[in-house]
Design a protein around this nucleic acid. Sequence first.
DNA 1: GCGACAG
DNA 2: ATCTTGTCGC
Length: 240
Amino acid sequence: MTTHENRSDIAFGEWDGNTAAARELQMRLAEKVVLADDFGALKLIAGVDVGFEDGGKITRAAAVLLDAETLEPLAQALARIPTRMPYIPGLLSFRELPAVLQALDALGQMPDLIFADGHGIAHPRGLGIAAHLGVITGLPTIGVAKKILTGQHAPLGERRADQVDLLDKGGKFIGTVLRSKEKVRPLIISPGNRVSLMTAPELVMRFVTRYRLPEPTRLADRLASRRDEKRAVVQPALDR
DNA sequence: GCGACAG
DNA sequence: ATCTTGTCGC
């Protein structure tokens, strides 16, 4: 069976506007998240991200597979499908995962770890898009977000790799605020599935090169948002 | 009731 | 996320 079969839940049916049902499903799935390092040698890693076309009518998901050792891109895939649901804070995964799963399937090979753009368990109900993706695929995942959705933290240092815990109201450790590079806003890292809170930021730093984002999500982001096209395309009708 | 609010 | 050019600072 393909990755997106056998799931007749709300995430893949038509969006009926029932946010309450979606939140209930999140709470049930959050119980299945494994917050322990449960993965073998990392040979293949992947990054996934989503962008939109035509004012939001089309959801465009990108998946990039890379060699965990050399960080060389080995394969990439795009999935473009009609957007089914609006953006609702806290319910992002229901809007983006259908396309993400298609892109992952198109990759042909499943990675040993997936980095997703967005939060893992650092979410109001413990199931951000990275955690949702991890539970659904059964694969290890890590959430790499650019902004906090929920939680607080102490002041963060200025140097590369400096980090502080992200705590929910109640003081529970739910993620890490990480300065991936000097002079850039920190990333918010949280486990998605089968990765511990301590290990998640380590793995992110392992794949950060000279940019703010680690290679997996940086490359997926470029594909999803068409950064490459916009950069490579020469302006026609301008040279006259 | 008021403010916050991933992408 | 996306709409959008040049511009200021490291």
